[in-house]
């Protein structure tokens, strides 16, 4: 597989011909990944206040997707919950309404936030020790391709049920005793 991110990005651009030509291909892929994660993970019912409550993908800090994420999830649902993007800026500390939180690499705030998070929250980050500090999914770049590692222990602790299919394509899965 020597295809570069450019082709992948093109692929998504072709699929969703949105504006956001200025967004880097890497984040366009990552935006798609975020959507795809919702397809392979089951959240506890307690994560939502009602069946019609929106599924918020919260970005903890500055938005690196430049609108690509919003474009991808536009009109999509997770079960009955409509997807939407929410930016957590400044010192906002309430995350309880976010089933998924993305921690951009630039913010470096995950170490402070994650331990305070309750059950039913999927944490996705980009930093090297994201899993070690309790994050659940970490994006990595490998040979110019976007891959991800999974911390199964953290996911279990958060009450999330990750599909084995997702685990299978993960680059690395941390599960308790370490693999």
């Amino acid at each position: 597989m020597k295809r570069g991110l450019g082709i992948l990005a093109f692929c998504w651009l072709a699929a969703w011909p949105a504006r956001a030509a200025e967004v880097s291909p890497e984040y366009q892929v990552k935006a798609a990944f975020l959507l795809n994660f919702t397809r392979f993970i089951e959240w506890p019912r307690s994560a939502f206040s009602s069946p019609n409550a929106p599924f918020r993908i919260c970005i903890a800090g500055r938005d690196p997707f430049g609108g690509a994420l919003t474009a991808i999830i536009g009109g999509e649902r997770v079960n009955s919950h409509p997807l939407m993007v929410e930016k957590l800026e400044g010192g906002q500390v309430s995350f309880s309404h976010c089933p998924m939180i993305f921690f951009p690499r630039s913010e470096n705030n995950e170490a402070a936030l994650i331990p305070r998070l309750g059950r039913g929250v999927l944490t996705v980050g980009e930093t090297e020790d994201f899993l070690r500090i309790g994050g659940i999914i970490r994006f990595v770049l490998e040979n110019n391709r976007v891959r991800f590692d999974v911390n199964q222990t953290a996911a279990r602790r958060a009450g999330l049920l990750i599909s084995s299919r997702l685990l299978k394509i993960a680059r690395y899965v941390e599960s308790g005793g370490g693999q």
Binding site: M1, V29, F40, R145, S163, R165, L166, I169
Partner: peptide
């Protein structure tokens, strides 16, 4: 079915 994840995440190897 088994390859949905791989396709979804463009994982050629998987």
């Amino acid at each position: 079915e088994n390859s949905t994840a791989a396709v979804a995440f463009d994982d050629a190897k998987s």
